[in-house]
C-alpha cells in the first residue's frame, strides 16, 4: 500500500516559488491499478516521483508498505526501489548501447545476482511481454511499442510489488498503446502488482480501477 498524507512539493528558485503539489492525501491499496490524470504541469509526474522515492516532498508524509519513506537512509532507499518498485517512462529510457536482454537485466545487476540467474530472469520477463525473440536486438532496431515492452520487462524483471508508469502509452499510437495497456492490466490481474499510471488518455485511464485527477497541484477528484 502507498500512503500519502498532506504531501506538498514546492520548487524554489532565487526568484520564483512554484507549488507543484498542494496538500495531497492519497491511499493506493495493494493490488490497485490507479491512474492519475490532469493537464500538463499539474504535478502528475511529481506525484509519481514522490511515490517512487525519486523525489522528496517539501512537507507531508509518504509511507510505502507501512514504512515511512523518511525512515530510510540513502542506500536503503536505493535497495527498496530496486526490490519493490518498477518504473516505466514515457520515452522508454532504454540504454541504446546495450542489447535488449542487458537492458532488462539492469535492475538485477544491483542485486548481485549471478549472471546466469540474471539471464534466466530477464528471458522470463521478455517472454511475458512477448519479446523473447528480440533479446539480442538493440533498442534502435525496435519499434516504439517494442521498446516500451522492453521497458515493461525491465520494470517487472525484479518482481516488484509496485509499478509506477509515467505516460507509458504517451509516445505510442493507439494500437501499440492498447497492447501496452493490456500487458499492464494482465500484470495487475495475474500477479496482483500495484500499478500507478500517469496518463493523458481518458480511454486508458477508464480501464484502471480508479482515476485521480489533479489540477494545479491539487487533487480535484
Amino acid at each position: 500500500m502507498i500512503l500519502l498524507k498532506d504531501v506538498t512539493k514546492v520548487y524554489q528558485t532565487k526568484t520564483i516559488e512554484t507549488t507543484a503539489l498542494n496538500n495531497i492525501s492519497l491511499e493506493v491499496p495493494t493490488g490497485e491499478f490507479l491512474s492519475i490524470m490532469g493537464p500538463s504541469g499539474c504535478g502528475k509526474s511529481t506525484l509519481l516521483n514522490i511515490m517512487g522515492m525519486i523525489d522528496e516532498p517539501t512537507s507531508g508524509q509518504v509511507a510505502i508498505q507501512g514504512q515511512a519513506v523518511s525512515d530510510y537512509h540513502t542506500k536503503a532507499v536505493a535497495r527498496f526501489r530496486n526490490e519493490k518498485l518498477g518504473f516505466i517512462f514515457q520515452s522508454f529510457h532504454l540504454i541504446n548501447e546495450l542489447p535488449v536482454i542487458d537492458n532488462v537485466e539492469l535492475p538485477l545487476i544491483y542485486r548481485r545476482i549471478s549472471g546466469k540467474k540474471r539471464r534466466e530472469m530477464a528471458q522470463t520477463a521478455l517472454e511475458q511481454v512477448g519479446l523473447k525473440n528480440r533479446m539480442k536486438h538493440f533498442p534502435g532496431q525496435l519499434s516504439g511499442g517494442q521498446k516500451q515492452r522492453v521497458a515493461i520487462a525491465r520494470a517487472i524483471v525484479g518482481q516488484p510489488n509496485i509499478i509506477l508508469a509515467d505516460e507509458p502509452t504517451g509516445n505510442l499510437d493507439s494500437v501499440m498503446g492498447n497492447e501496452i495497456m493490456e500487458i499492464l492490466l494482465n500484470l495487475n490481474k495475474e500477479l496482483g502488482t500495484t500499478i500507478v499510471m500517469v496518463t493523458h488518455d481518458e480511454t486508458m485511464a477508464r480501464k484502471t480501477h480508479r482515476l485521480v485527477r489533479l489540477f494545479d497541484g491539487s487533487q480535484v477528484l
Binding site: 517512487g52 525519486i54 540513502t74 542506500k75 536505493a78 535497495r79 526501489r81 530496486n82 526490490e83 518504473f87 517512462f89 529510457h93 540504454i95 539492469l106 535492475p107 545487476i109 544491483y110 542485486r111 525491465r154
Partner: peptide, 16 residues
Amino acid sequence: SAEIGVRKAFGAHSGS
C-alpha cells in the same frame, strides 16, 4: 545523465 537517472531509479546507489 538520463541513463544514470534510470540506473538510480532501478536501485543503483551513488557508490555503484
